[in-house]
Design a binder for these strands. Structure first.
Lengths: 335, 335
DNA sequence: TACCCTCATGTTAACGCTTACATAAATAGC
DNA sequence: GCTATTTATGTAAGCGTTAACATGAGGGTA
C-alpha cells in the first residue's frame, strides 16, 4: 500500500541500503552481480527515490518558481513554454504562480518558495519595488528578472530593449508616411512597459520633427484589453490621427474592435501597430502588424541564466537584451 | 549564510527543539514565558520551517500537480485561477505542467510527481487512455479529471455536460430560424471535445428534423486556431450554410478571420457560434456568440473535490457536471 | 509526609536518503 | 608468504522536522 523505500529494495536484493544508493548514484562502484540484483529489485518494486529526502541532504530541490502577474495574458504562454523546455534540459521543475498583481499573494508565494527550498525564482514582467527587493534579498534565493529589469538594484534580467522596440515601431509608421501618430500606452508608473515604450515613442517623434504629436497619448492603467475607453479618448483628443501605436497587442485588439464598431476602417483610415506578437495577432481582423518579442527565447534564456547563477558556473551578463523584430501584417498601410 | 533551523531557534531561546516545534504546532501546550522567547527568536532569525523535512514526516507535501495539454490555449487561464484560489484556501500549492500533448512529457511529469510526493494530480482536458490510466493507478496518487472524464474508469471528474451544451448551441441556431447548419469540430478520436459535441450537434438536428445537415461537418485534428483550411472545406462542402457551430472559440475566431478575408459578412450571411467563452471572445469582430463554460468554477471545484478525496472527507459525486450557458453576442442573427 | 496526577519540557527515534568511515576481502608487490 | 594497497560493502551519522516516551517539578488528597 505504502510507497516502497530504499529499505524494501535492499531487503529484496539482499544488500545494504547504501549499496542500493550507490547503484543509483555511482553504478560503477558496485560489482556487476549485485548491481543487477538491485536493478531487478528496483524494477520489481517500481521504486523511485523520494525527492524530499534527497532534497534534505543535497540542499537542492531542482525546483524553480515562476511568478507571473496575470496568467490570462497570452503573452506569458510562450515564455512559460521556453522556461519549461530549458528546465527540462537542465533538470529543474517549475512551480508556476499567478499573482494577479496582488502584493499579498506575491509575498505569500515568496514565503512559500523559501519554505519549500526552491533553488531559484523567475520573476516576470513586474517592476521591482523596494519592498519586493528587500523581501527577495532576505530570502537569499537567486532571482532572475524576466521581461523586466531593475536599474536601481543589481538583479540579473532577460528582456528586449523596450525603448528601442517602441522607437522602431513608431519609426516604421513614420517611414510609411504617417505624420499624425498617436499612442495608447501603459501608465508611466509602470517603469517597464509604460515608461520605456513612452520614451521610444517620444524619441522617434523628436528625431523626425514630429514633436507636435507628443501630446497624442492616452494611458491605461489596467492590463486588460477591455479598454475601449482609451480608444475613444484617443479619437476625441486627436480626431485626425492616421496611425496608432499601442503598447500591447491586447490593447491593439481592443482598439480594432472599437474602430470596427465606429465604422472606421483599419488600415484604410487608421493604421494600428501593436506590441508583443501574441499568437492571436495572426488572426485578428485585419491581421495585426506588431513588434515581435522572442518570448519563447526569453523564457528559455532566463532559466539558463538562472541555472548558471545557481551553479555558480560563469559570470553571466547581468542585464541581457534579446532582439525584437517588426512583423508587418495587414493593420498598417503606407500613406 | 545558511538558513536558520529549528536548532538555531532553540539555542537562542534557550529551550529544546521540541519546545520550538510545539510553539509552532500546538502553542497552548507551552508556557507563556517560553513561548514568547521562542517567538522572539523565530522573529529575530526570520525562521521558517523546512517544508521538505516536514513533508518527510507527515507524508504530505500539500502540493497538487496540474497537467495542462496546451498552455497557449486561453481556455486554461481561468481554470488555473480557480484552482489557485481553491488551493490557497485549502492550503495547497500548485505545480503547473504543460505537456503540449506529448505523451513522453506527460509520463515524465507523472514520474516526477511521484518522486516529489505530490498529494494529488489535476489532469485537465485530455482523454484518459489505457496506458495513462495504468500509469496513474501505479502511482497510487489521487487523480481528478478536470474538463474531461472517463466512462471506462472510475475516476472523479468535474466538467460541463458537453453533449448537452453542444445540443443547446445548435438548438439556439435552429430556434433562430437557421435550417442550413454546419459544424467545425474536433476529430472523433477525441472522446471529450470531439465525440460529445458531435453527438450534441447530431441530436439537435435529429430532434428538429434537420437530418439533411448531418453531413455538414468538418473535423480538425489540431487544437490551434490557425486552421482556415477547415473553414474552406466547410464552405466547399456546403456553400449555402447560414450558420456554423464550432467546437471551440479558437476555431470560431479562425473562422471569423477566414470569412472576413472572403468578404463574407458575419452575421449577415453566416452566423457563427463558438464554444468556451474565452476572455477574448468579447472583442472579436463581430463579438462572438458562444457557449460559456464556468471555467473558474471548474478549476475551483476540482481542487475542492480532490482535497475531499485526499482527506477522505466525504464521498463526493464521482462525475460532477457544472452548468453551462449560451452567451449571445453579435456573431449570430435571427433569420 | 507519602502518594498520585497533571503538566511542561527534554530526549530520542523515526521519516528516506546520502556519505564518511570502518571493515573485510581481494589483489599486488617484494 | 607476508605486508601494503586497492576495492567492494556494510554501519552509522546526519539532513530538519515531529511525536512518542521519559522525566521531574508542582499541586492536591489522605
Amino acid at each position: 500500500m505504502t510507497k516502497p523505500t530504499i529499505k524494501d529494495v535492499a531487503k529484496i536484493a539482499n544488500v545494504s541500503i547504501s549499496t542500493v544508493s550507490r547503484v543509483m548514484n555511482a553504478p560503477e562502484s558496485v560489482i556487476e552481480s549485485k548491481r543487477s540484483k538491485v536493478l531487478d529489485a528496483i524494477e520489481k518494486l517500481k521504486y523511485k527515490p523520494n525527492a524530499l529526502a534527497r532534497g534534505l541532504i543535497y540542499k537542492k530541490t531542482n525546483t524553480l518558481a515562476v511568478v507571473i502577474p496575470d496568467i490570462r495574458n497570452p503573452y506569458y504562454a510562450d515564455i512559460i513554454r521556453g522556461m519549461e523546455d530549458a528546465s527540462k534540459k537542465l533538470g529543474y521543475n517549475l512551480i508556476i504562480c499567478n499573482t494577479d498583481r496582488d502584493k499579498k499573494r506575491l509575498f505569500s508565494y515568496l514565503n512559500n518558495f523559501y519554505e519549500r527550498q526552491v533553488d531559484g525564482i523567475l520573476y516576470t514582467s513586474d517592476p521591482v519595488f523596494p519592498d519586493y527587493y528587500n523581501e527577495i534579498k532576505r530570502l537569499r534565493i537567486p532571482v532572475m528578472l524576466v521581461s523586466t529589469h531593475s536599474m536601481e538594484y543589481e538583479l540579473p534580467s532577460v528582456k528586449i530593449d523596450d525603448e528601442q522596440a517602441a522607437f522602431d515601431a513608431v519609426k516604421f509608421l513614420i517611414d510609411s508616411g504617417h505624420r499624425k501618430i498617436g499612442m495608447i500606452g501603459f501608465d508611466l508608473s509602470d517603469s517597464i512597459a509604460g515608461q520605456t515604450r513612452y520614451h521610444g515613442f517620444i524619441r522617434a517623434l523628436r528625431e523626425n520633427d514630429l514633436d507636435e504629436c507628443k501630446e497624442n497619448i492616452v494611458y491605461v492603467n489596467g492590463w486588460s484589453y477591455e479598454t475601449p475607453d482609451a480608444a475613444a479618448q484617443m479619437l476625441a483628443k486627436c480626431p485626425d490621427v492616421t496611425a496608432i501605436f499601442t503598447a500591447s497587442d491586447e490593447l491593439a485588439i481592443g482598439l480594432l474592435c472599437y474602430l470596427d464598431e465606429r465604422g472606421i476602417s483599419v488600415p484604410d483610415q487608421i493604421s494600428v501597430i501593436g506590441f508583443d506578437n501574441i499568437r492571436l495577432s495572426r488572426i485578428t481582423i485585419p491581421k495585426l502588424t506588431t513588434v515581435s518579442q522572442p518570448t519563447y527565447e526569453i523564457g528559455y534564456r532566463s532559466v539558463e541564466k538562472l541555472d548558471a547563477i545557481i551553479e555558480e558556473k560563469e559570470d553571466p551578463v547581468l542585464r541581457e537584451y534579446l532582439p525584437h523584430e517588426i512583423v508587418v501584417r495587414a493593420s498598417t498601410r503606407r500613406l
